[in-house]
Amino acid sequence: MTTTQEVLPAETSTPVSSGPERRRRSVNALPYGLLVPATAALALALGYPLVRQVVLSFQDFGLAQQFGKPPEWVGLQNYRELVTDSYLWKVVLRSVLFCLANAALTACLGLAVALLMMRMSKVVRIAVQAGLLLAWAMPVVASMTVWTFLFDTQYGIVNWLLTHLGLDFDGHAWLLHPMSFFGVATVIVVWMSVPFVAFTMYAALTQVPEELVEAAEIDGATGGQRFRHVVLPTIRPVLYVVLLLQIIWDLRVFTQIFNLQKAGGVTEQTNLLGTFIYRQGVGGGHFGLASAAAMFMLALAVVMTAPYVRLMLKQEKEA
């Protein structure tokens, strides 16, 4: 656990209550008062919509209601419609697969970069860190325009490069086919996400006790064995947190998919949950149906978040 604590200073720095605080424990209303503004803001902007969304998801709320007709209570019909709609299942499956593939790829590449960073000379390492920071700092929308340009059918450098390598990529339209669309999306998402993983894992790797690795080496462990039996167990808690966060984050890739769709993807074949909900609701006016789909997404997120929250709670209690 020492590694986790080194990398998670915000966690460990929670104060151990000292004398005067303990005395104040039961009598004071002040801390509750201090929490009021934050709680009120969250209740207004998240709590209230959540309640409304639950209600909406049981109503027939379409375009007619948008123009003043009172919404009709339809019970579970929206959910029934969603569950029996094979298109939604396609979208869900697509979202989950995309999320898991991207998270796994990001974690592996991030770890690989971190391991390489341990081995390279200082100058190269500084260059790598500078590059990672640049990619990390880029605003999402700016990254989207550049990557769209890089993969552009006519003027994109990717096509130019592949053509010059002797492949037939002249005028290749990357976004036209769903598989290749998601390939491009994966490249972009992974490019944006690897820096965080690489930095975090590098920080964890620098905490692996040198003596342990040396001792294993003296005992005749090969490089692979040293990694698997000494290094990996030490960094496993951090790797676990990073992977969980990545899964949660990759479930919501609205900006990337939305912008790639505009740049030339076939919307119906490339929708993930976020863009699907958006197009049903804001785009199509089917608010009841969109709300039901959004409830589905919330449930999915909660399921995926649960282990992370449990882990954080454990650390909170230990601190």
């Binding site: 209550s17 605080e21 303990r22 104040r24 424990r25 004071n28 002040l30 801390p31 509750y32 929490l35 969250l42 998240l46 919509p49 959540l50 409304r52 969304q53 909406l56 949660i248 479930l251 919501r252 609205f254 949950l273 976020g274 909900i277 958006y278 609701g281 804001v282 608010f287 969109a290 709300s291 959004a294 409830m295 997404m297 919330l298 997120a301 909660v302 978040t305 992370y308 929250v309 954080m312 709670l313 909170e316 209690k317």
Partner: peptide, 28 residues
């Protein structure tokens, strides 16, 4: 700076809220 009932619950709630995907609520 204070220890009070519900402190851990509040922190935990923050963590959960933090993880809510924007797309899960933007319709409502």
């Amino acid at each position: 700076r204070f220890r009070f009932r519900g402190r851990i619950s509040f922190i935990l709630a923050l963590l959960v809220i933090q993880m809510i995907p924007v797309e899960g609520l933007f319709i409502s």
